[in-house]
Amino acid sequence: MKVIYKITYPNGKIYVGSDLTDSRLTYFGSPSKEFLYRDFDHAELQDFVIRKQILWQSETATDGEVRRRENVLIVEHGANNPEYGYNQRPRYREAGEMG
C-alpha cells in the first residue's frame, strides 16, 4: 500500500510526505532537522508527541502518481509555507509571486 500522510507537530506545524514501501508504522518522513531544532528547545523535546494521519492511499498507483499527488496535497495543506509547515518542496510562493 502506498500512502501520503500528514505529520502534525506540537507547535501545529505540519509535514506532508509519502511512503512507497508500506512502512506506515515506523516511517515519519524527513523534514529538515534544522527547521525542527529551530522551533523546539531541549526542554520541549523531553516530552514530544506528534500525530500522523493518512491523507490518501492506493494499492495500484505508480510511484510517479504518488509523488504528483503528494505535491498537490503539500500545496493544498500549506505544508510548504514556512509559517505553517516543514515541507521545502514544492517551493512556497506568496500570492501573486512570479517564477
Results as ranks from 00 to 15, higher is better:
Glu65Val: 07
Leu25Met: 06
Leu36Glu: 07
Asp63Phe: 06
Thr60His: 06
Tyr84His: 14
Val16Cys: 12
Glu59Ala: 11
Glu44Lys: 15
Glu76Gln: 14
Ser30Leu: 04
Thr8Ser: 10
Ile7Ala: 01
Asn87Ile: 08
Glu34Lys: 12
Trp56Lys: 10
Gly78Arg: 09
Tyr15Glu: 10
Ser30Ala: 13
Glu94Tyr: 15
Glu44Met: 15
Tyr92Ile: 09
Glu65Met: 13
Phe35Pro: 00
Asn87Ala: 06
Thr8Val: 11
Ser30Phe: 12
Val3Ile: 04
Arg51Glu: 13
Gly85Ile: 02
Leu20Ser: 14
Leu55Glu: 01
Glu94Cys: 06
Ser23Asp: 05
Lys2Ile: 14
Pro31Tyr: 05
Asn71Lys: 15
Arg51Gln: 09
Asn11His: 09
Glu44Pro: 05
Gly96Lys: 13
Gln53Ser: 08
Thr26Leu: 06
Gly64Glu: 14
Glu94Asp: 03
Gly29Gln: 08
Arg67Ser: 10
Gly64Ser: 13
Ser58Thr: 06
Phe28Val: 05
Tyr27Asp: 07
Tyr5Pro: 08
Thr26Val: 12
Arg68Tyr: 04
Glu34Cys: 00
Asn81Ile: 02
Ile7Asp: 08
Pro82Ser: 09
Glu34Gly: 00
Tyr84Arg: 15
Ala61Ser: 10
Ile14Gln: 00
Gln88Cys: 04
His77Arg: 05
Val72Asp: 11
Val49Ala: 04
Val72Ser: 03
Asp63Ala: 14
Ile54Lys: 03
Ile50Pro: 03
Met98Asn: 08
Leu20Lys: 15
Glu97Leu: 12
Glu65Ile: 10
Glu97Ala: 15
Leu73Pro: 07
Glu97Pro: 11
Glu83Tyr: 02
Pro31Lys: 08
Glu44Tyr: 03
Gly85Lys: 09
Gly64Leu: 12
Asp22Leu: 02
Leu45Pro: 01
Arg91Asp: 13
Met1Tyr: 05
Ile4Asp: 03
Glu97Trp: 13
Glu94Ile: 07
Ile54Glu: 13
Gly29Cys: 05
Arg38Gln: 14
Glu97Met: 15
Arg93Lys: 15
Arg51Ser: 09
Glu76Tyr: 06
Ala79Leu: 06
Asn87Thr: 09
Arg91Pro: 05
Ile7Tyr: 02
Gly64Arg: 14
Ile4Glu: 01
Gln46Ser: 12
Tyr9Thr: 02
Tyr9Asp: 03
Ile74Gln: 10
Thr62Ser: 15
Gly17Cys: 07
Gly85Val: 02
Tyr84Gln: 11
Ala61Phe: 05
Arg24Leu: 13
